[in-house]
Simulated assay, not measured.
Amino acid sequence: MKYNLLLAVIFLLFSCQSEVKKENLTQLNGYWEIKEVEFSNGETKEYKVNETIDYIEVKSAKTGQPLVGFRQKVMPQFDGTFKTNGIRENLKVFEVDNAFFLECKTDYGKWNEAIILLEDSTLVLKNKQDIIYTYKKFKPFSLK
């Protein structure tokens, strides 16, 4: 009962139709670099250079089951490798009324983010504070 109420509240908070298709959810997998944050007051902050990026990995354990996985901050290195502190957020992708959400969980908390847009090179997430995060696929750099 509490879970259904929570889902209803989340849906009302975001109240936007998702442009995300179920068959494209595996496009979440990969390295994502924050491009822009739009705050609830309309102000935006652009990111030109990022020291850390998000690595997302989701998969379905069984056909018809929700996607589960993790998100982890990583630091790209000049040799093409990544360093991390090993801390991961557990993820679960769920659907409510044709909109898709990420359920994020750590030892310190649990929250949801609406997946507003998911394309090959763009990911847009929105949290319950109406902050919109726009990501682009990370392109590795090299000094070679």
Rank of each mutant, 00 (worst) to 15 (best):
E46M: 00
P66R: 01
N98K: 05
Q65M: 09
L67M: 13
D54E: 08
K2Y: 15
N98R: 08
L12E: 14
V74R: 01
A61T: 06
F14N: 13
Y108M: 15
G42T: 03
Y133G: 05
A8Q: 09
K2P: 11
V20E: 02
T122W: 04
Y3V: 04
S40T: 15
I10A: 13
S40E: 15
E103S: 05
F101L: 03
T134W: 00
E119M: 08
V124A: 11
D54Q: 10
G80Q: 06
I53M: 06
M1Y: 12
E103P: 01
Y55A: 07
V9G: 12
K126P: 02
N85D: 13
V9W: 10
V96R: 08
D120E: 15
Q72W: 02
Q27F: 02
F14M: 14
V93H: 04
Y135C: 14
T26D: 15
Q27N: 13
D54F: 00
E89R: 10
T81D: 14
E33H: 03
G109A: 14
L25R: 10
P140Y: 01
Y133H: 04
D130M: 05
G86A: 08
K35V: 09
K45N: 07
K35R: 14
C104M: 13
E33Q: 12
G109K: 07
E57W: 05
K45S: 08
D97E: 11
Q17P: 02
K48Y: 12
L67G: 04
V93D: 04
A99L: 00
K136P: 11
N127K: 03
K21V: 11
F138S: 03
F82M: 00
F39L: 09
K136L: 11
F78E: 11
L91G: 14
D97Y: 10
Q65F: 00
Q129I: 07
W111T: 13
Y31L: 15
S60Y: 07
G109F: 04
A61Q: 13
L117C: 12
F101Q: 02
Y108Q: 12
T84V: 06
R88Y: 08
Q17T: 05
Q17V: 11
K137P: 03
V96I: 12
K126V: 04
E23W: 05
L102Q: 03
I56Q: 01
K128G: 08
Y47W: 03
W32C: 09
L123P: 03
N85T: 00
S121D: 14
N85P: 01
F78T: 10
T63H: 11
V93R: 05
C104R: 05
K137T: 13
L123M: 06
E46T: 10
T44D: 09
E46A: 07
K144S: 14
E57G: 03
A99M: 05
G109N: 12
F11T: 15
D79A: 00
E46Q: 04
E19Y: 02
I34W: 02
F78W: 07
L12N: 15
Y31E: 11
T81A: 07
E33N: 08
F141A: 13
E46H: 13
K62H: 12
P76Y: 03
V74N: 01
I34D: 06
N98E: 15
K128A: 10
Q77P: 09
